[in-house]
């Protein structure tokens, strides 16, 4: 097994651990962190792929994809964090009505 393959395998394992967390954890913040772990797994796979290029230079395309992916991940995490706060604080003056019961825990 080459180093790159080892990293790619680690990425897949991280992805699986993160997915397990999203499915099994009830707390929203833990779910969000698990999604981030999944994301890191995918990025690790992409970075490992970059080493496959010939000619001694790593392939720049997966790097570009990882950079874009990180930007997306950060924005999504920020949005999710603000939503988590809103869910837990509850908006002032707005008592959860009948709908809240459908939402479940």
């Amino acid at each position: 097994m080459t180093t790159a393959q080892f990293y790619a395998l680690c990425g897949v394992v991280l992805f699986a651990i993160g997915f397990h967390g999203v499915v099994t954890r009830a707390h929203q913040l833990r779910k969000l962190l698990s999604v981030n772990v999944m994301g890191s797994g995918v990025f690790l796979v992409l970075v490992a792929l970059a080493s496959r290029a010939t000619g001694g230079h790593p392939d720049p395309v997966p790097h570009a994809m990882v950079l874009t992916g990180i930007v997306v991940a950060i924005s999504a995490t920020a949005v999710a964090l603000s939503l988590v706060r809103r869910v837990h604080e509850g908006d002032a003056g707005e008592a959860p009505g009948d709908d809240a019961r459908e939402a479940g825990p």
């Binding site: 897949v12 992805f15 993160g18 997915f19 999203v22 929203q28 779910k31 969000l32 999604v35 999944m38 994301g39 797994g41 995918v42 796979v45 992409l46 792929l49 997966p62 994809m65 992916g69 997306v72 999504a76 949005v79 999710a80 939503l83 988590v84 809103r86 869910v87 509850g90 908006d91 707005e94 959860p96 009505g97 709908d99 809240a100 459908e102 939402a103």
Partner: peptide
């Protein structure tokens, strides 16, 4: 402006992010 709406948005976002990451792993492969 309701907790239900924030909760629905959060759940949609998490489901959607998981979906996107599955897609992205497929792109990587």
């Amino acid at each position: 402006n309701q907790r239900t709406a924030s909760f629905a948005a959060l759940r949609y976002l998490l489901a959607s992010l998981v979906g996107s990451l599955f897609y992205l792993l497929g792109v990587a492969l």
